[in-house]
C-alpha cells in the first residue's frame, strides 16, 4: 500500500520535473534581463568609479538626486513626459472611438476591412522610418510643406527643425497618426460585440442614429474605453523613446519641448557618460512609474475587478 503511494508521488515528481525544466530558459532570462537591473538601482545612490568597480564605489546617499532636482531639466522632462502623455491619451481616445463608430456604420462588407488595414499601417512602422517620413514633409530645404504646401497658401517656409514651439503640435500629430488606427481596431472589436437587439429595439422606438451612437454604442463600450485608458495612464511616466528622439532628429535646439525622461536618461548615460544623473533620473522614473501603475490598477479594480491587471 505505502509503496504504491510512494510510487505515485515519485511519478508525480517526475511529471512536474519536466514542467519545471521547461521553465528554466525563461526564468533565467527574466532574472538577468529584468530582476538583476532592479537591484542595480543602488547605482543611483553611489558615486560610480569604474576603477573601484560598481559594487565597491562609494555610497553618496541622495546626492545624485539632489543634483538632478536642482537642474531645470528635472522639471522640464517631468512636465513634458506627463503633458504629452495626457494629450496623446485624450486625443487618441476621441479619434479612435470616432473611427470605430464610423467603421461600424458602414454598410458594406469589403470597405471597412480595407480602411482598417490602411489606418493600421502606420502602427507597423519603426520610429526610424517615421523619422524619415516626417523629415520628407518638414525638411527645411526640400520638405513637401515648405516647398509645395506653404507656397500654395502664399506663405514662406518655416524652420521646423530650429524652433521648439512647433514640436508639441508635430509630435502630437505624429503620435495620433501612428497609434489611433491601432486603438480604433480595439474599439471596433468592442463595438462589433454589442448585441444587435439593442439597436433593433432603439430603431423601433424611433431613436435617431446619433441617439443610438451616444445612448447605446458609447455606453456599451465604456468598460473597454476605461480599461484601455487606465492602462495608458499607468504608463504615463514612460514615453515612446523613438518618437521623442528620432522624429526631432535628436536635435539639441528642440529639447525644451522634446526632451522627456527616457531621452534624458539615454543622453545623460551614453552622450555625457554621467552615470549619477542618468541613474537618478532612471530610478525616479521606475519608482514614480511603479506607484502610478499601482494606483491606476487600484482604480480599475474598483470599477471592474475582472479587468484589473492583478
Amino acid at each position: 500500500m505505502s509503496s504504491r503511494v510512494t510510487g505515485i508521488s515519485l511519478k508525480k515528481l517526475k511529471k512536474y520535473k519536466m514542467l519545471y525544466l521547461m521553465l528554466i530558459p525563461g526564468v533565467v532570462y527574466l532574472l538577468i534581463n529584468n530582476y538583476a537591473p532592479m537591484f542595480g538601482i543602488i547605482i543611483a545612490f553611489k558615486d560610480v568609479n569604474f576603477a573601484k568597480g560598481i559594487m565597491n564605489s562609494d555610497w553618496v546617499g541622495l546626492k545624485n538626486f539632489e543634483y538632478l532636482f536642482k537642474t531645470e531639466d528635472a522639471y522640464i522632462i517631468t512636465r513634458n513626459t506627463i503633458l504629452y502623455n495626457l494629450v496623446f491619451i485624450a486625443l487618441n481616445l476621441v479619434v479612435a472611438v470616432a473611427l470605430a463608430v464610423l467603421l461600424y456604420e458602414l454598410k458594406n462588407r469589403f470597405l471597412p476591412r480595407l480602411y482598417q488595414s490602411i489606418i493600421l499601417l502606420p502602427y507597423l512602422m519603426s520610429s526610424v522610418i517615421i523619422g524619415y517620413l516626417v523629415y520628407s514633409l518638414l525638411s527645411m530645404e526640400t520638405g513637401l510643406i515648405n516647398n509645395t504646401i506653404l507656397p500654395l497658401l502664399g506663405r514662406g517656409g518655416v524652420m521646423w527643425y530650429n524652433d521648439p514651439k512647433y514640436w508639441p503640435y508635430i509630435l502630437t500629430l505624429v503620435k495620433i497618426w501612428s497609434t489611433a488606427g491601432y486603438l480604433s481596431i480595439v474599439y471596433f472589436a468592442a463595438v462589433v460585440g454589442i448585441d444587435h437587439e439593442y439597436y433593433e429595439a432603439a430603431t423601433l422606438d424611433g431613436a435617431s442614429k446619433l441617439q443610438r451612437i451616444f445612448k447605446i454604442t458609447i455606453p456599451l463600450i465604456t468598460p473597454v474605453i476605461i480599461i484601455m485608458t487606465l492602462l495608458q495612464i499607468g504608463r504615463i511616466f514612460y514615453s515612446d523613446f523613438g518618437l521623442f528622439y528620432q522624429v526631432p532628429l535628436d536635435s539639441g535646439v528642440l529639447m525644451p519641448t522634446t526632451n522627456v525622461i527616457d531621452t534624458y536618461v539615454y543622453r545623460a548615460l551614453l552622450k555625457n557618460g554621467d552615470i549619477g544623473m542618468s541613474s537618478a533620473a532612471g530610478v525616479y522614473q521606475s519608482i514614480v512609474g511603479f506607484i502610478i501603475i499601482l494606483i491606476s490598477n487600484y482604480v480599475v479594480k474598483k470599477i471592474n475587478p475582472d479587468n484589473s491587471l492583478f
Binding site: 537591473p37 536618461v265 551614453l270 541613474s279 532612471g282 521606475s286
Partner: peptide
C-alpha cells in the same frame, strides 16, 4: 511588467 531597473543598470550589466 510593473517595475524595472531602467536603462542604466541594464546597460552597465
Amino acid at each position: 511588467m510593473l517595475f524595472n531597473g531602467g536603462l542604466v543598470p541594464t546597460y552597465l550589466m
